[in-house]
Design a protein around this nucleic acid. Sequence first.
DNA 1: CCTGGCACTCTGCGTGGGCGAGTGCCAACT
DNA 2: AGTTGGCACTCGCCCACGCAGAGTGCCAGG
Lengths: 338, 338
Amino acid sequence: MLSERRLQVLRAIVQDYVGTEEPVGSKALTERHGLNVSPATVRNDMAALEEEGYIQQPHTSAGRIPTDKGYRLFVDRLASVKPMSVPERRAVQHFLDGAVDLDDVVGRTVRLLAQLTRQVAVVQYPSLTRSTVRHVELLALAPARVMLVLITDTGRVEQRMVDCPGPVTENAVADLRARLNSRVAGQRFTAVPQLVQDLADAFDAEDRGAVQAVVATLLETLVEETEERLVIGGTANLTRFGHDFPLTIRPVLEALEEQVVLLKLLGEATDRDVTVRIGHENEHEGLNSTSVVSVGYGSGDQAVAKLGVVGPTRMDYPGTMGAVRAVARYVGQFLAES
Amino acid sequence: MLSERRLQVLRAIVQDYVGTEEPVGSKALTERHGLNVSPATVRNDMAALEEEGYIQQPHTSAGRIPTDKGYRLFVDRLASVKPMSVPERRAVQHFLDGAVDLDDVVGRTVRLLAQLTRQVAVVQYPSLTRSTVRHVELLALAPARVMLVLITDTGRVEQRMVDCPGPVTENAVADLRARLNSRVAGQRFTAVPQLVQDLADAFDAEDRGAVQAVVATLLETLVEETEERLVIGGTANLTRFGHDFPLTIRPVLEALEEQVVLLKLLGEATDRDVTVRIGHENEHEGLNSTSVVSVGYGSGDQAVAKLGVVGPTRMDYPGTMGAVRAVARYVGQFLAES
DNA sequence: CCTGGCACTCTGCGTGGGCGAGTGCCAACT
DNA sequence: AGTTGGCACTCGCCCACGCAGAGTGCCAGG
C-alpha cells in the first residue's frame, strides 16, 4: 500500500512530465509542487514507486517518467475529469450549430474534438444496430433495377442498387414499399430480419423474384453496415508526439487507417462513461505508445455510437477526458433536436 | 538550349535521386548509366545545368539534386507515363469489383491508389454540378417535416431535413414529388434553379409555404454541395518522405486536412490528362515540397470528379502518373456500369 | 569539345574530455 | 521509523578536434 505522500509524488511526476515532456527529478519536484519534504525523501519515495512499477528511469541518472501502470493509477485515483470552461462550451455549441446533415455533424465533431484536445479525433457514425428504421424508400430507376434507400432515426441514410431477375411494375414497387414500411418503420434494425422474412409470399409469382432480391439486399445492407463507418481527423497533431516520433508515428498512422482496429478500440468503450485505455492496454501493437480516450454518445439515454481521441500516453488526461465527455454530450443533444 | 547529352544527364540525375534519395555525383552517374563520357565531362554538363537552374547542390562538395524546374523538364520532356503491368491492372479491377455503393467505390479507390503509388491518395466524390438528377424523393416524416433525398446519375445521394412552416398533407407531398421529378429528372444540376423557380405557383395557398421551404432547401443543397466532398488515405506513407521529414510532414498533414486546399489542388487538374504540379507550383505553402499528380475521371466522356496523389517532389513520376491514369480509367468504367 | 589530374572544400563520423543533473546510500537527527 | 543533508558516482549531452571520403572546379593537354 502506498502512503498518501507517495501518491502525491506520483501525481506530481505525471503532471510535470505531461507538461515538460522531460524526465522529472527529485529536486524539481520539491520545488514546483508544495511538498514540504526534502529531495532526499522524495528520492526514497521514487525508489519505492519504481519498485512497484509505477515509474521508471529512461537511463541511470536521469529523472523518472511514469509507466503505463503509473498513468493508470493516476487516471483511476489521482485525477478527476476537468470540466471545460464556459467559453469553450460556448464554442462547442456554436461550432455544432449550423450543421446541415449527419455528415456535417460528424465532420464538425471530429474537427472540434481534434482542435479541443490537440490530438487525433475519431468519431463513429450512429450505429445501425442500435437505431430504428424511420423509412424505407424504393425507387424504380429502370425496368429491372430498383434503388433501395434506408433512413434511420438518427438521420443516417444508406442506399443500394438492386438488380432484379426480371422487370417489375411500378405498382409492385409501390406495393412492396408500403408493405415494407408498415412492417419495419419504427422498429429496431436488429428486428428487421424476422419482420421481412415471409414478405415475398404476399406477392404474385411474377414479382416474387424481384421482392426477394430487394429483401436480400436489405438484409445484406444491415450486415455490412454493422461494420460501422467512422471519420478521423487531426492527424497533424501526431507531430506533437515527441522528439523520437518518427518511429512512433508510423504504426499509429497505419493503425488509424485500419477501420477495423479503430472500431474495436471504440467498441471497448462502455456506453456512457469515459473510458481510457493506456499504452499496452491497447491490443493493437501500433498503438502501444498511445492512449485512447473514448465515450458513447446518443440522442436518448442509450448510446448509438462512440467517439474519442488517440494521443500519446503522455497526455493531459483530465483535460482530454473533459473535452471528450463534453463533446459527446453536445453532439447527443444536437442529434436529439434534429 | 541544352544539348541532348545534357538532357540525358538530367534524366539520369532525376532517376538516380528518386531511387537513392541521395545527392548524385558525377562518378556514380557515368557508372550507373551508359553515358560514354568521363566524369569530368559530366561535371561540365552539371555545371551548365546548375547554371540554368535545373539542379542544385545541397552544399559545396556534395552531389546534385534536381530542382523543381528540373523535375518539371523531366516530366515534360524526358519521361513518358509508365503503363501499369498486367497483373497490376488485374488487381485494380479485382479490387474495385464488389463495391456495393458509391461510398464503397470511393473508399476502395483511395486505398487502391495509396497502395499502388505508396503515397497519399485523394479522391473527390462525383461533382453535383456536372451530374444529372436521377430522382428527387420526398418523405413526409412528421406533419410539418419532410425529408428531401437527391439521387444523381453517379449514384451519389444527398439528404436534408426540411422544416415546413405548417403541416403538409401526404397528397401535397406526392404532388410536389411528381412535379419536381417531371421537371428536373434527367436534367443537369446546374439547370435546376431555373426549372423549379415558379413551382410554388401551381399549389394552393396553404401548401405554398411548404413547397417554398422544400425548394429553398433543394437550392441550398446544390450550393453547399458544390463544395465537394473528398476522401484521403495512405497518410502513413508520409513517413517515407525523407530523413528530415519531421519538419516537412507537419504542414503537409495540415494542408491535407483543409478540404478547401485540396479541392483547389484537384480543381486545377485539366479534365482528362494527367496533371502534375511540382513543389512551388503549388500555391499552398505547406505543399511546397510536394508534388501533386491528378486527373479527372467520369463514366462518360466528361470528367465528373478528380482524383490524385500527393507525394514528395522526389517521386517516381512515370510510375505515379501511370497508376493515377489507370485507376481513373477503371473507376470511370466501373461507374459507367453501375 | 573531351579527358585526366590535382588541389580544394565540404560533410559525416568517431573520439575524448568536461559539465551537470540526478541518483543511491549512509550517517545523523527528530 | 521516518526524514534529512552530505557525498561519491554514473551517465547522457555537448563540443571541439581530426580524419577520411566524396565530390567539385579548374586547367592543361589530347
